[in-house]
C-alpha cells in the first residue's frame, strides 16, 4: 500500500460514509440537551435572584418597622439591616456581572482551535471561580448567609425578647451548617473541572509547540 492508495481510501468515505445518522433522533436529542442547559441557567438565576429579593424585601420591611417603632433602636440595629441589604444586593449583582463578564470573554475569543481552547479555559475558570476557590465560595454563598442571618437577628431584635441560645441560637447554627454543607457540595462538584483544565492547558501547549 502506498500513500496514493491511502488517499483513495480516504476519499471513498465521501461517497459512502462509514456511519448512518438517525437525523430525527438527533434533533430530538439536541432539543433535550439545549432544554437541560437552559433549565440549569434559569434555575440558578431564579434561585439566586429570588432568594436575594426575598431577603431584601424582608430586611426593607424590618428597616421600615424600626424607623417607625416606638422603642428606640441602637445604631447597630441599623447596621445589621444595612449589612443584610448590602449582602442581598451583592448576591444578585455577583451573578449578573459574573454572567455578563463570561459572555464578554466568550465573545472576545474567535473560532480557531487556539481561541476555542482559550474560551473553554475561560469557561472553566468561571466555573472554578464560582465553586472551587474559597474566596469564590465566600462571594457566592456568604452574602446569602449574611443576609438571612441579618434578617433573623433583626426580627429577634424587633420582638424585644431576650436571646435564648436553646431556641434562638438553633436557626443560626442551622444556617451556618447549611452554608458549610453548600460550600462542601460546590467544591466537591468542581473537582472534575480541575483535571479538565489541566488537560486543556496541555492541549494548548501541544498546539503551540513546534
Amino acid at each position: 500500500m502506498n500513500l496514493d492508495e491511502v488517499m483513495d481510501a480516504w476519499r471513498s468515505q465521501d461517497e459512502a460514509p462509514l456511519y448512518r445518522v438517525d437525523e430525527g433522533r438527533l434533533q430530538e436529542a439536541l432539543r433535550e440537551e439545549e432544554a437541560t442547559r437552559r433549565r440549569g441557567l434559569v434555575l440558578e438565576a431564579r434561585v439566586t435572584y429570588g432568594l436575594a429579593a426575598l431577603v431584601f424585601a424582608g430586611l426593607a420591611l424590618v428597616f421600615a418597622l424600626m424607623l417607625f417603632d416606638d422603642d428606640p433602636r441602637t445604631w447597630w440595629d441599623f447596621l445589621i439591616v444595612t449589612l443584610g441589604l448590602a449582602a442581598a444586593v451583592f448576591a444578585a449583582a455577583n451573578l449578573y456581572f459574573g454572567r455578563t463578564r463570561l459572555a464578554l470573554r466568550e465573545r472576545h475569543f474567535g473560532a480557531s482551535l487556539h481561541d476555542e481552547l482559550g474560551r473553554h479555559l475561560a469557561v472553566l475558570d468561571y466555573e472554578l471561580s464560582r465553586t472551587w476557590r474559597a474566596s469564590a465560595i465566600m462571594r457566592t454563598m456568604l452574602p446569602f448567609y449574611l443576609g438571612t442571618t441579618a434578617l433573623y437577628l433583626c426580627i429577634w431584635r424587633i420582638n424585644n425578647e431576650p436571646f435564648k441560645w436553646g431556641t434562638d441560637g438553633f436557626p443560626l447554627l442551622a444556617m451556618s451548617g447549611a452554608m458549610c454543607y453548600g460550600a462542601w457540595i460546590a467544591r466537591h462538584a468542581a473537582q472534575d473541572a480541575l483535571p479538565r483544565k489541566r488537560r486543556l492547558e496541555e492541549l494548548l501547549e501541544k498546539l503551540e509547540a513546534r
Binding site: 481510501a9 468515505q13 436529542a29 482551535l113
Partner: peptide, 26 residues
Amino acid sequence: LIETALPRRDPRLDWLYARIAQLDEV
C-alpha cells in the same frame, strides 16, 4: 444516533484511522 453503514468499509481506512489515532489530539 449513528450506526455502522453497510457494506463493510475498506480495510485501508481502518489502517489509516489506526495510524491517526496514534497521533496526539492536535
